[in-house]
Design a protein around this nucleic acid. Structure first.
Lengths: 232, 232, 232, 232
DNA sequence: CATGAATGAGAATTCATTCAT
DNA sequence: AATGAATGAATTCTCATTCAT
């Protein structure tokens, strides 16, 4: 039944797949070029459709941008929503687990590109920024702050102000996301995410250890191969 | 020296002042809106001149952008060039001093906006990125890495790989620069730079303390008012 | 006559009905928005079919427009074709009857919208305008001119030049058609078509009365209720 | 000093004249093609400038359209504002004078094109229609209605309802404006405005004459050459 | 026959850049 | 030196038209 002479159709009907293809193409371009420098025609071509088709699914450039952000955020946020309140262990372990999972579920995904986008476009899309704040930043911050508060309360961390310390803990993860998106920003050096995270977590937990607590686990990573900690 | 035939111009000659006003206006707008979304007309108006005048000083938008970056960078970098090789003290004190000075001389200035700009536009201006890498990132990184190497060698820091630890140390400072530029990114919370830096430095130095070293200064900030450390 | 092999279609066949629904929808939209501002998608939706279906019946937008005009014109023109040559009465009565019938058969129908359309699009559709001229304007004008000529010849009208007077008589009817389509054009006031027509006809016939003729019928409407003249 | 080799400049600086030139070009095109079918590039070229220049003076197509209407209306309306309250003569003379002046000051000007435009675009520009209603239609209507009321009150016109009769009187003038703009609408016949107006006014005044009044002036035009009445 | 996803030419709009004054 | 009117290439967005299903 194969017809070798059959010509390729001008287009294919893929209504269901289109939005995702367009969002993926748009995410790539928005992240690498920025919002304003991204031409919708490139997005369309990159998704294998024509300019007009894009407008079948998104009312205009701004709506496409919002959809890209929402889509790329909602996905991982949903999965990353971890119930740490239920976990019953040492706060240092909690923090370590949270940060590592965060990286695997969010940081290592395309969602990292969104972070860069929001940094660049925060001022130009206030409502979107608010959405991002509520759905992503506030949630993530709360997770960190809660663990800090818990650790201090249980005497597992030295007495720090969770609200002050929280951004300090968040910063290295955010920068890792940025660096993983823009290797140019590292002055040529390539960052190994897991070595980076290990060094960061280890140093931070040591720095949070109360004077009374003995050194060693769970405040320190085992001296052994750090690469054994993760699957990749 | 008096030249009687030289006619006095009707307008005040400010050949050198003009560019600075334009650069300042451009920096503000580039930082807040991004490169592409910044219109040269706004830059000109913001500097109190006409669009045409802008072109008397800068060949085009791209050159203006480069000039903005170079200008905002070279200034503080020159001042911040501190000779830590000559300093003879505990590596923890060196690191603390470097980070605090960095903040005062660079982070707290408009140069912070450049960081945001470079993150957003890295892919669109490769040569500029290279310049930024060489002049800023590499220098700053080397400073940090040198102190780490020195500290480890002198037994003042535990045995860490300076190349791995370096970005971990840099990250919180960079994020502070970004946050200071875009308060929207903090989910409403305002970050007090000095409290943030104190928490960051204190925790990091504690985390770098070798097991053999006694707790307390210079690894820990004095419990007393941290605000005494800086001028503000 | 029964054909047992003829399969029954799943859907009702309305080959002839479809165009009418489409023409009706198109007429409405063309009249209210104008030709260029009318989107075929709206026409299709308004007729309850898809855009593609429209193209099964009309080759393109222009053909649809022409079909709308022809359809909306030919219909009433056929009915309004009145043989006034055969009528044997006072010319004033003839004129009155013609105008009233014209209104009832043409002016009060959707065909009024066509008048508005042709005024707006005359320059853009020259051939259509010619068709409209020949089928509608010329015929209507001839009817009026004939009655005028007859009235003057029979001494029932004062000596007027039928070619000059004809457009004067036609104008109020055309404007009534426009006003009935676009109430916005009346500055808020609503026009009662029959009161308007009564005032117009009465005044005009009085104005056409020869000096020799006695005042009163047929030159004047009976002072009694004008509303008794029509059915509504 | 004439330099025959001097090249023509790319453009000429004509800031003050530009808007009027653009408005004139736009009026022509809007009137002949309609709003939607008029391309701004054509307007610009027609005014001898580039697309971009047009946007220097009008924010967008809609604003240009509004400006065209306002400009073309305000001008003649201002001049046509005649104080008939002060005139002390026979109402028939008043009416005749008003209509003739209206034609000379408004109808015979480009403002006639606006009438056509508003008929076509009334539904698409509601606010503009309101402006037109208030500035043009309402004023004109009031003028006519006032004279009718005055005439009836003074016994110079038979007893008619001014509100009903007003549109009947206005219609022929409006149609004359339309016909003067779109000769195509006359089925080939060319209308001589002054002959038309003479026939119209004469017939109408005869039709408004009270039974008691004697025939002849001022209800009738002198039988003599009507062309002598106006300057053209 | 009917559908509606897809197309792409075309029109509106923006803005970096030029240049006569 | 300074201006700002003018330009036109580039981009967003629309919609008549096509065609695989």
């Amino acid at each position: 039944m194969h017809n070798p002479t059959e010509s390729k159709p001008r287009w294919e009907r893929r209504k269901d797949a289109r939005p995702q293809e367009l969002l993926a193409a748009a995410l790539d371009l928005f992240v690498s070029r920025g919002y304003a420098a991204t031409r919708l025609e490139d997005v369309a071509r990159s998704a294998g459709v024509s300019k007009g088709t894009l407008y079948l699914y998104f009312a205009n450039k701004e709506e496409l941008f919002k959809a890209v952000v929402r889509d790329a955020i909602v996905q991982p946020i949903g999965e990353a929503e971890m119930d740490f309140a239920a976990i019953d262990g040492h706060s240092a372990d909690l923090l370590r687990t949270l940060l590592m999972r965060w990286w695997d579920k969010v940081g290592a995904t395309k969602a990292s590109g969104i972070t860069k986008l929001m940094i660049a476009e925060a001022a130009n899309f206030p409502e979107l920024m608010q959405f991002y704040n509520e759905e992503v930043i506030a949630r993530g911050n709360a997770l960190i702050a809660n663990i800090l508060t818990r650790g201090v309360a249980r005497g597992e961390f030295r007495a720090v102000d969770p609200d002050v310390m929280m951004p300090v803990l968040v910063a290295p993860v955010l920068m890792l996301m940025l660096w993983s998106q823009s290797p140019q920003l590292c002055a040529g050096a390539t960052i190994d995410p897991y070595a980076y995270l290990a060094a960061y977590i280890d140093t931070t937990l040591r720095g949070l250890r109360p004077a009374s607590a003995p050194e060693g686990a769970p405040y320190c990573m085992p001296a052994a191969p750090a690469t054994g900690l993760h699957n990749k």
